[in-house]
């Protein structure tokens, strides 16, 4: 019996060891980043990871002397609008593919699926010409309009809508609900979790856009954070490490907070929607 206990203890110890090693691998970049954001750049440049002067000075510098807050604000606007638009348009498209009967429905669905195979990165040249012609360059709209809908989001919500029991539609029909009513009274609340998942997904992908805003925005008034950081790196002397790390921290904190609160929905939603 004690033999058995001893073995279990060793196993448990090994397990914690594994967990801690993995944690270190994941966390070191974070810790190092946050830590150095508190150190004076002069000390960091000497290769020191300790300083007698630990302060939030870098944050003050970043906020007062760079447009980092403006970048954050821009990204927030762009990401929120994109997210809302995708929730609406993806859910309406998914609704059509699940609950409407019309000629060519399956063909259209394959067309949607096919767009998932076409990388946006391979289409930037004509898209650039298009937004230039539409006069959208260097404006919020240029980062929102092309992403108002998403084939992936439609696909994910379709999978989720397919799980709604057909009887609910029949119950709605008996009461004479129109498609529009069934959509917002039943389908949307029923698929709440998938909707949250899509919300988180579309918010994050918009937030993480890099190439497209880099090509289409030229002023700090509209530039989102990702490209803002790039701008800071090229403008400031690349070696102002403390300030750069502080900017990175400012940017990452909102997403980390959002992530930890949304984690539960993300987990269940992704597994339900995407894989089945």
């Amino acid at each position: 019996m004690t033999q058995y206990n001893k073995k279990a203890k060793i196993q448990q110890f090994m397990h914690y060891l594994l967990l801690i090693i993995l944690t270190l691998f994941i966390l070191i970049p974070f810790i190092l980043g946050f830590w150095t954001s508190l150190l004076p750049t002069a000390d960091i440049s000497k290769g020191a990871l300790w300083s007698s002067h630990i302060s939030l000075d870098n944050y003050v510098t970043a906020v007062t002397q760079t447009p980092i807050i403006r970048y954050l604000f821009n990204s927030l606007i762009i990401s929120i609008i994109t997210m809302l638009a995708q929730i609406i348009f993806c859910s309406l498209s998914a609704y059509s593919f699940v609950f409407l009967k019309f000629k060519g429905r399956d063909l259209l669905f394959y067309v949607f699926l096919a767009t998932m195979m076409l990388p946006f990165e391979a289409e930037v040249i004509p898209n650039f010409t298009t937004v230039r012609t539409l006069g959208l360059l260097n404006h919020y709209a240029v980062m929102i309009v092309p992403f108002l809908t998403s084939a992936f989001g439609t696909f994910m919500l379709r999978q989720s809508f397919l799980q709604i029991p057909g009887e609910l539609k029949e119950a709605g029909d008996i009461e004479g609900l129109s498609h529009w009513q069934y959509y917002y009274k039943v389908v949307m609340p029923y698929s709440k979790i998938s909707i949250y998942t899509l919300a988180a997904y579309s918010f994050l992908s918009s937030w993480n856009q890099y190439l497209w805003p880099m090509l289409t925005t030229f002023s700090d008034n509209f530039r989102p954070v990702q490209d803002g950081l790039r701008q800071l790196q090229s403008q400031e002397s690349f070696n102002n490490w403390g300030m750069i790390q502080a900017s990175a921290a400012i940017i990452i904190i909102p997403t980390l907070i959002a992530l930890f609160f949304g984690q539960h929905y993300f987990k269940s939603g992704l597994n339900e929607g995407a894989i089945k």
């Binding site: 190092l32 980043g33 150095t36 937030w207 990175a248 940017i251 997403t255 980390l256 984690q263």
Partner: peptide, 19 residues
């Protein structure tokens, strides 16, 4: 902790690793 890098955007990751 294990899910934390999901909240990391590309520019932040680049800065962390560049350092």
């Amino acid at each position: 902790i294990f899910s934390a890098t999901m909240g990391v955007s590309v520019s932040v990751a680049a800065i962390f690793w560049l350092f």
